[in-house]
Computed example of a mutant assay.
Amino acid sequence: MKIALVGIGKIALDQHVPALAASPDWELAATVSRNGAVDGVEAWRDLDAMLEARSDIRVVSLCLPPVPRFDYAMKALQAGRYVMLEKPPGATLSECALLERAAHDLQLGIFATWHSREAAMVAPAKAWLADKTITSGRITWREDVRKWHPGQDWVFEPGGMGVFDPGINALSILTEILPRPVHLRAATLEFPENRQTPIAAHLHLSNGIEADFDWRQEGPQTWSIELETDHGTLALHDGGARLVIDGAVSAAPDATLSGEYPRLYARMAELVRAGQSDMDLSPMVLVADAFTLGRRVTAAPFHF
């Protein structure tokens, strides 16, 4: 199937392009970007022009920042294309609901992707927890914004989500593996005095689960979820690549991210063939609740 990739930045080049190149399901037939391109692939600067000229392209994958994504997704749907959304699927819950409704009304499909759910040990963790009761937990998700979003000021603008850009990855795993839903009880959000979105956050969730997100960690990055249950302890480390259950370690044979995007594109192919959508917004609900309930504190200015 032919697919167009919209928004050719770091995540597109590092993850989407290699995943598509290795897939038996997809042909990357076009890109749309004001600043980037992929060697050997037809490049466009305008989505409308591409949609009009390339009726053979059945699917559009959007790697844009969250704020402009809604308009692009709606245009693609109205042009009769299936749509794949990089996480988070939008800037607001209401626009995500509108996109899902539009896809349904147009008899198309839309996919809100959560790449961290595709980490190798997430499914085994979910299976082990299925009959357990969670008694407490700790999420530690700390990384360096300068490494992952170098000079990208949009992450600190309204709609950019700040530290929840990586933090939502942890919440996507949590909402996938827990046998029952959780909800937010309270939050503290640290906003640099010169920025519009938080650089750190602490969440108090039900079932005694605490989450610590920070975008200022240099050196080794930390992506861990540890859960106490009525039948032992489970921990996911390295973003879901390593699973520890009561001291017994299971680890993915490959790098943390190497299998995530190939699995997302395999799932997208399934959805297109079945004419279905997958728009689970539960991680985004928790982030929205954090902005609603969160106590705001001021942190030192941040500069790239």
Rank of each mutant, 00 (worst) to 15 (best):
I3P: 00
L5R: 08
I8L: 12
I11F: 12
A12P: 03
L13C: 04
P18V: 11
L20P: 09
A21K: 15
S23K: 00
L28K: 00
R34K: 14
D39R: 07
E42Y: 05
D48I: 07
S55E: 14
I57Y: 06
V59I: 13
S61W: 06
L62T: 13
V67T: 13
M74D: 11
L77D: 05
R81I: 03
K87N: 06
P88L: 07
L93F: 04
L98Q: 15
A102V: 13
Q107M: 05
I110Y: 04
I110Q: 03
A112R: 01
A120L: 06
P124F: 09
K126Y: 00
A127Q: 12
A127R: 15
R138M: 09
Q152I: 11
F156D: 04
F156W: 13
F156M: 14
V163C: 11
I173W: 08
L174N: 03
T175I: 01
E176V: 08
A186Q: 12
E193K: 08
R195W: 07
I209H: 00
I209D: 00
Q217A: 15
Q221M: 13
E228W: 06
T229H: 02
L234N: 04
A235G: 04
G240N: 01
A241K: 04
R242V: 15
A252G: 09
L257R: 12
Y261Q: 11
Y261V: 14
A266Y: 06
E270T: 14
G275A: 10
G294E: 05
R295K: 14
R296Q: 11
T298M: 06
A300F: 06
P301G: 07
F302S: 00
